[in-house]
Design a protein around this nucleic acid. Structure first.
Lengths: 204, 204, 204, 204
DNA sequence: GATGAATGAGCATTCATTCAT
DNA sequence: GATGAATGAATGCTCATTCAT
């Protein structure tokens, strides 16, 4: 009988190993050998599961995006009001980025750069950074609309405000990446969120 | 006598050519040959002005940062109140990034990545991304303090709010880069800024 | 399983191929491609066995020195008297240099030049040309001392005379290299050796 | 009026500068720029006096050989007997090589290598290393013959013994180059010469 | 299936030589 | 005559990918 191998599990194992190396050395400086070593397998074996370095990279990208979204969604308590859900979602986004998956912020820039530079290859929607931003907006806008409807928020262009909130999140990540030890991401996140909420809230 | 050449001008010419290529193909995919071609010179000539690809890249980085800061400062009308100066500075930042210099946003991510990955080489402060962020904060904080002192703004942690404003700017740039044609950067910028200003303003 | 290769054998194969090319074109004019071609392998393969051109060169140097010494020692009949052993050793040195290993005289000058120019890098004693000369003296001096003790030779400074004998050998090699076809190395060697022996022998 | 330049003097100036650099850095590591700098002139100017690096090198070679021979000849006192003239010539050879001209031993190996590798280009006899050796023999043989005729020396193959003496000189140079500080060249030279003389002298 | 030895396209960099001034 | 800015051929080395075992 042939060796029984859980192909999916092994593929994921390689993927996670690759991401760890990407994070540690940067995508550009990561050699296939490094990944093979990190995964404890032979170099050639990678090609049994991924057709090329490129595909491996894209798969890592995709895996990450899926993971982020799943974790964000899972951390929102649907029974809360829109403000609290915004707070939860916002913090979850930063949380996921900074703590959960394989220390992934370090790869974030490489992914961003890739996504932005390849935004026109419509083939793989999952990798289209525009799609990703739209998904984030689609998570945010309903909360804003709900707030407006309940009179909590003043009427506003929810698309733009959603974009603003996402922008703030990304921008904070950048500053935190630049100076992890001294930049207090959580406090900054809370501050900016409260400022924004106060900025759209109806005067009481 | 030998050929007379304005070394400074030529150096800058090569720099700008390089930046154009960096922007077009991405730093990682830019070959020295491409740059030479773009500059209309021989490959070897680049090395008369830059000791290595690395130095050329760093010079481009530095050049850009210097330029951005200069343009931002120059576009602020010191006679205005803090809110308007914030508006001017914020828009100037995005303006500079998106329109002025050699279409440079495209390089921005590569620069960010470089800066973040090399944050610990204190040798060249100008390239230290932490320094860059601190400079931006140092431009912003005084405006916030002035607003607080005049009673326009509610008291707040000016460091964090300044960071927030910068974050919003960077984050918007990311979204704009991802979808230039459909994302209205200017409108988004104005919206977010007004939200933030309303968020820190004293109730009237 | 991956291809099974006798790494040591292949390394030696490359080494010998390299030495052949070094001999033919001179070390300075030898390109990695030439070596690859001579060895019947790809350029990159060399780097699987040697980390750099430099290391390849040094390995060749070392290989040669080891080989020479081994052959010299092996050709001396320890049962003979000091004069005959001197003769054997002297001729063996020239023999080895001129006939045995891969036509190596042609490389000798490059090796000499390398050794002399890098005499101060104590790291690799095996490549230290001073060490090499000392080894040759250490093989010669005991024979001279034995001859003195048995009254065959007049007392003399054995260090200097050993150096002299070695010098004669090297010098003859130079002349032979310069004009292989017309310079009778063997006859010259025998002549000079007899002159020297007569020069240190006790009058009878 | 055009600038008056002593072309020959300038040529020689460049030549000597080149030799100094050759000696210091090794021929292979000497760039045209280094030579220009050492000569205090522009890089292009070298080509006004030498058509190529190759020609410059060969000219240096030739210059050196001419110089050595002249100095050797000039230091021999023709009124002395053959033994003393041999001693003078032998020491003069080493002297010239080690002290007189621009520290030239350092170049010697490069010249030797060049001469030996290019022995077949009969174009320039002056550079033919065979010619050079023959010249040295032609200086030595008459002295040996004179000694034989006067009964001072035993009859012997003067060609081979002359070659032997030259070989000893070259060989000593090699050992001295390898370890300048510890190898006493003069004492070694005197020792070997006396041994050889005793080896060819008639018993008294 | 798994492996890692082999490969060669590709690239940064050097430097002798040219030639406009 | 003198110069040094410009050049591009040449080369050592890297690394993604292939494929024999």
């Amino acid at each position: 009988m042939a060796k029984v191998v859980d192909k999916d599990a092994k593929r994921k194992h390689i993927l996670r190993s690759a991401m760890r190396v990407f994070a540690e050395k940067g995508v550009a400086n990561t050699k296939m050998t490094d990944i093979a070593q990190a995964a404890g397998i032979g170099k050639g074996t990678i090609y049994e599961y991924f057709s090329s370095r490129e595909e491996l990279f894209e798969s890592a990208f995709e895996y990450l995006l899926r993971k982020i979204k799943a974790m964000m969604v899972s951390q929102i308590d649907e029974s809360l009001g829109p403000e609290d859900r915004l707070r939860q979602g916002f913090l979850a986004y930063l949380d996921v980025a900074t703590m959960q998956i394989e220390d992934f912020v370090e790869i974030l820039l490489d992914f961003w750069a890739y996504g932005i530079r390849n935004k026109n290859n419509g083939e793989n929607l999952a990798l289209d950074i525009r799609t990703r931003y739209q998904e984030l907006r689609d998570l945010t806008i309903p909360l804003l609309e709900e707030g407006i409807q309940t009179g909590l928020f003043k009427p506003h262009d929810t698309y733009l405000v959603a974009s603003a909130i996402i922008a703030a999140g990304d921008g904070l990540l950048l500053q935190w990446m630049a100076d992890r030890n001294n930049f207090n991401l959580k406090k900054a996140a809370q501050t900016i969120l409260e400022v924004i909420l106060r900025g759209i809230r109806n005067a009481t």
